[in-house]
Design a protein around this nucleic acid. Structure first.
Length: 491
DNA sequence: ATAGGGTTAG
C-alpha cells in the first residue's frame, strides 16, 4: 500500500491553479514497478479536471491490465461518476483495450446510477470491439433494471439478447427468472415461466428458482406446490429444493413445519449437507431457540459434516442476537485457534455489530484493528455499523471522525453511510449540524447516489427552520436536477 | 452471474 502511494506525486500547482499529477514508476533494478490500484483510484478522485486524469493515466507508463483496471473500478464503486470517468478515459487509450469484465463493471455502475444511455453505449462499444456482449452482460443490466423497479425492461432487455448476437437458452432464461425472483417479482417470473415453458423446457434449476421466490415472499404453500408440479412433470427434486423449502419454513416462522420437514429429510435418507445444517442453526437461533442451534451444531460434527465459515457465522450471529456477545466471541476465538475455517469479513462484521450493540465500542474497534491479522480490511459495512452505533449513543463527533477515516482513502462511503450520518445531524438540534447535513446531501448526489424524497425534505425543513434560506434554495435546485419531485416550500 | 446456508434497516 505504502509503496504505491509514494509513487503518486502531486506536482504542486501550475498555471491557473491547476494541479498536475504524475504517476511515477519507481525503478527497483528489475524493471519498473507499477502504481497500485489504490494510488490510481486516489488520483482519479483528487483530480478535478478530466485532462489531468487523462495525462496521468496515459503518460504515466502504466502497464494496464484488466485486473488492475477492475481493482480501480471496485475502489471507485461508490463514486460512480469518477469510476465512469476513469473507465471512459482509459477507453480512449492509444493501445490499451478494455476487457469484457471491465465493461461489465462499467455497465453495472452506469445502470446503478440509472444512466442507461451509458450502459447501452458500453454494449455497442463491446460489440464494435468484438468482445461481447455476452449473456452475462445482459444479466448485469437486467438485474439493475429489476432492482431499480423496472422489471419489464429487464425482461425486454433479456429477450432482445439474440438481436445482439447472444444465444437465448435455458441457462440465460433461468438467470432472468432468478433476477426477477430476487427482486421480489415472483409473479412475473412465474408467469414468464409458464408462458415460455415449451420454448425453454424448464429444468430442476428453473423450478428451484421459482420455489425459492415464493419462499422469499413467505408463501411456502405456493413453493411446495411448485415443487409438487415439478415431480408431476417427472423432474426429481434435488437437495437444493429441500434446503430451499426448509429455509422458507423458517423465514415464514413455521418452526414446527421446519422441524418436521428436517426429520422427513433424514428419514428419506437425503444426504443432508452443510447447507441444511447451517439453515437449521440459523433458523432455530433467530426463532430464539439457541439450545437447539447448538444441538444441531454438535449433531453435525458428530455426523462428520465439516462446518463452513457460513455455519460459524450463523452460530455467531445467533449468539449475538439471542444469547450473549461473550459467547459469540468465544466461538470466534475457537475458530481462530482450531483453524477449521478462518473468520472472514462477515464474521468480523457480525462480532463487531454484536459488541457495538451492547455498547462496547472499545472492543468493537479492537476487532476492527484485528482484521488485518486475517488479511482483511474493514468494509463499508464495517464502517457503517460503527458509525451508526456511535451516532445512536449520541457520540456524533466520533461518528464523524470515523466517516473522516473513510474519506482519506481506502473505503468510500455508500448510500447507507450517508443516510445514517444525515439522520444523526438532526439529533443535537444544532444549526451547524444541519449545514453539515446539507453538505453531505450535496456530496452524495455528486457521487451518484439518489437520496430519497424524505431525506431531501428533512434537510430542507431543517435548513429553513434554522434560517439557512440560501443554502436551502441551493439544495432545492439540486433536487430538481435529480428528478425528485420538488415539494412546495415557502422561501 | 443458472438454483440452496452466513453481514443490512427498527
Amino acid at each position: 500500500m505504502g509503496k504505491g502511494s509514494k509513487m503518486l506525486e502531486k506536482c504542486g500547482k501550475v498555471g491557473r491553479g491547476r494541479k498536475y499529477y504524475r504517476l511515477a514508476g519507481a525503478s527497483n533494478g528489475e524493471g519498473v514497478e507499477q502504481p497500485s490500484d489504490g494510488s490510481i483510484a486516489k488520483l482519479v478522485l483528487e483530480s478535478e479536471w478530466a485532462v489531468e486524469v487523462e495525462e496521468a493515466l496515459w503518460k504515466g507508463r502504466i502497464e494496464w491490465k484488466a485486473e488492475l483496471v477492475n481493482k480501480v473500478l471496485k475502489r471507485l464503486w461508490n463514486h460512480g461518476p469518477k469510476a465512469l470517468q476513469f473507465f471512459k478515459h482509459l477507453d480512449r487509450h492509444p493501445t490499451y483495450i478494455h476487457s469484457p469484465s471491465s465493461f461489465h463493471h462499467a455497465i453495472d455502475i452506469a445502470a446503478r446510477m440509472h444512466d442507461y444511455n451509458s450502459a447501452w453505449a458500453f454494449f455497442s462499444r463491446m460489440r464494435s470491439l468484438r468482445c461481447g456482449p455476452s449473456p452475462k452482460s445482459f444479466a448485469i443490466l437486467a438485474e439493475r433494471y429489476a432492482s431499480n423497479g423496472k422489471p419489464h425492461r429487464a425482461v425486454r432487455a433479456f429477450l432482445s439478447m439474440h438481436l445482439h448476437g447472444c444465444p437465448q437458452d435455458l441457462h440465460s432464461f433461468n438467470t432472468l427468472l432468478d433476477i426477477l425472483c430476487k427482486s421480489h417479482r415472483v409473479d412475473m417470473a412465474h408467469h414468464l415461466f409458464k408462458t415460455l415453458f415449451s420454448r425453454f423446457k424448464p429444468d430442476a434449476v428453473s423450478y428451484n428458482i421459482i420455489a425459492n421466490g415464493y419462499c422469499l415472499l413467505k408463501r411456502t404453500p405456493l413453493a411446495l406446490q411448485v415443487l409438487k408440479e415439478m415431480v408431476h412433470r417427472g423432474i426429481q427434486p434435488t437437495l437444493v429444493s429441500y434446503n430451499t423449502l426448509l429455509k422458507g419454513y423458517f423465514r415464514s416462522n413455521q418452526i414446527k413445519d421446519a422441524w418436521a420437514f428436517y426429520l422427513e429429510m433424514q428419514k428419506r435418507k437425503c444426504q443432508i449437507d452443510v447447507v441444511t445444517y447451517t439453515t437449521m442453526i440459523h433458523g432455530f437461533g433467530v426463532a430464539g431457540d439457541v439450545k437447539k442451534s447448538r444441538r444441531v451444531f454438535h449433531e453435525m460434527v458428530k455426523e462428520g459434516v465439516v462446518p463452513s465459515v457460513a455455519t460459524y457465522n450463523a452460530l455467531i450471529q445467533v449468539l449475538c442476537k439471542k444469547d450473549t456477545v461473550e459467547n459469540a466471541v468465544l466461538v470466534f476465538e475457537d475458530m481462530v485457534t482450531e483453524g477449521v475455517c478462518l473468520p472472514n469479513l462477515v464474521t468480523y462484521n457480525l462480532v463487531i455489530r454484536g459488541l457495538c450493540h451492547v455498547g462496547d465500542m472499545e472492543r468493537a474497534l479492537g476487532f476492527m484493528g484485528r482484521m488485518e491479522e486475517h488479511g482483511l480490511r474493514p468494509s463499508v459495512q464495517t464502517y457503517n455499523v460503527v458509525i451508526r452505533y456511535f451516532c445512536d449513543a449520541g457520540e456524533i463527533e466520533k461518528g464523524l471522525d470515523m466517516f473522516g477515516k473513510m474519506g482519506d482513502g481506502s473505503c468510500l462511503p455508500n448510500l447507507d453511510t450517508y443516510n445514517v450520518l444525515i439522520s444523526a445531524m438532526f439529533m443535537r438540534k444544532k444549526s451547524e449540524d444541519l449545514v453539515v447535513a446539507g453538505k453531505l446531501l450535496i456530496e452524495m448526489v455528486d457521487r451518484g447516489f439518489l437520496p430519497r424524497k424524505f431525506t431531501f425534505n428533512r434537510v430542507l425543513d431543517g435548513l429553513v427552520i434554522t434560517g439557512n434560506q440560501e443554502f436551502a434554495k441551493e439544495i432545492l435546485r439540486m433536487q430538481s436536477r435529480c428528478g425528485r419531485i420538488v415539494r412546495r416550500l415557502k422561501l
